[in-house]
Design a protein around this nucleic acid. Structure first.
Lengths: 224, 224
DNA sequence: ACAAAAGTGTTGTATATACACCCATGA
DNA sequence: TCATGGGTGTATATACAACACTTTTGT
């Protein structure tokens, strides 16, 4: 192999992961507090450097396991941010991912020091260009939800139609009509009723549904 | 700065650009023949290494200027391919872009040695993972066209409605009804008629239209 | 006059939207 | 018995899909 010409960039690569969840009718994101320079004590997206012989998708899963304590969640490559000025340490590009995690899977990480799960709306002033990455992820996630079944990854295995509707309302940012929503979602054929009900609330028990597929599928007709 | 721990990847970064054009009712792609190892003499997507202090988007424009001889064309980041086995020379990740160029802007590059503009359908056996990148680009381009005005970037400034319809037919892969297409496209309000006609053909001259905006815009309602 | 593409409306069908009441449970 | 969310149908408006003939030019 020839020596590298000196106009070529010396690059390091990282992965940052935008972990979304929905809770209290609010879209939230997982953040970690940095414990070293640069941006020490700032909040940032969870991330890390790419290891030798590792794909960024594997690195993203590693970050999800180590920092968010979750496995088997939906994650997808988002965009690569590579402005040479984005990191003061040098030319460090980041392959950003986003992941969707049901709130009930984030119990253990809530207890960890130096992590926060906070409303996306109230999030700004993150380290590096992470505000920009977060904004980009929100946009992508919104459109994804409109033509795929990814909502499954924000809900427990069994869920009520109202819970599913809440997911869509939070992400769309406006309420939708209950009857029309149910008609639409049932006509898509992506979920099916179980024979179980959610009891123990102070109102009529709701029938529990499940997604037919727990893997990412794009729909022919859009949901919204 | 500390020394780099040895489990971190030594990375180089490249950009590869999928340059699409439409000609003879066919979707075509610009390819270059490699003149060095690995994959010497194989066709590949035009691309190159990232320079110091350069963003991948700038590198993509540089590639477009140097290899495709075009400027001011639509280009957009596609996806980052980073399987450590994708390049035998080492851990080389590529930030792929796709660009849309009207056929009439590719005149000079046609004459160049070692370049080819060929039908996407008939393209396979490219160097590295470029078949995969090309497939990914085709898919993305199809969906983009459905909810944006990017068709402008595949046509000359002035064009007939039949030419525009051809763009959609080629990318959708099936013919569409002329009257319905015109109704739809006019109702979107993204193009407007000029007072010029395209004469010199052996049939009735067609009114020429232009896009209101020559910059990428996402539409509220999808075209298809 | 002929060939070839340009241009133009209507109708039926399917989809989306708007809207209000009764039901089952826990407290 | 009351409060709370669960569950259900219809009528109207809008969007989509199918379809054929006349016009203008070049040869």
């Amino acid at each position: 192999m020839n020596a590298k010409p000196n106009y070529l960039a010396d690059i390091q690569a990282t992965t940052d992961v935008v972990v979304f969840t929905i809770e209290d009718k609010t879209l939230k994101v997982l953040l970690v507090q940095r414990d070293e320079e640069p941006f020490i004590n700032h909040l940032s997206l969870p991330g890390g450097f790419l290891h030798k012989r590792e794909k960024s998708s594997e690195a993203a899963l590693r970050v999800l396991k180590d920092k968010a304590k979750v496995r088997n969640v939906f994650s997808e490559q988002l965009y690569t941010f590579d402005d040479p000025k984005r990191d003061p340490r040098g030319q460090i590009i980041t392959v950003a991912y986003f992941a969707l995690v049901p709130a009930n899977k984030l119990l253990s990480v809530r207890l960890a020091k130096n992590t926060a799960i906070q409303s996306v709306k109230e999030t700004k002033g993150l380290a590096f260009d992470h505000d920009e990455i977060l904004n980009y992820a929100v946009k992508r996630m919104r459109t994804k939800l409109g033509y795929s079944n990814v909502a499954y990854s924000l809900l427990p295995k069994l869920f009520t139609l109202s819970q599913l509707q809440e997911v869509y309302e939070v992400i769309l940012g406006h309420p939708v009509d209950k009857r029309n929503f149910r008609k639409k979602i049932m006509s898509l054929g992506i979920i099916e009723p179980t024979n179980q009900k959610l009891t123990g609330q102070k109102h009529r028990p709701a029938l529990l549904y499940k997604f037919k597929k727990h893997s990412y599928t794009e729909l022919e007709e859009p949901i919204f």
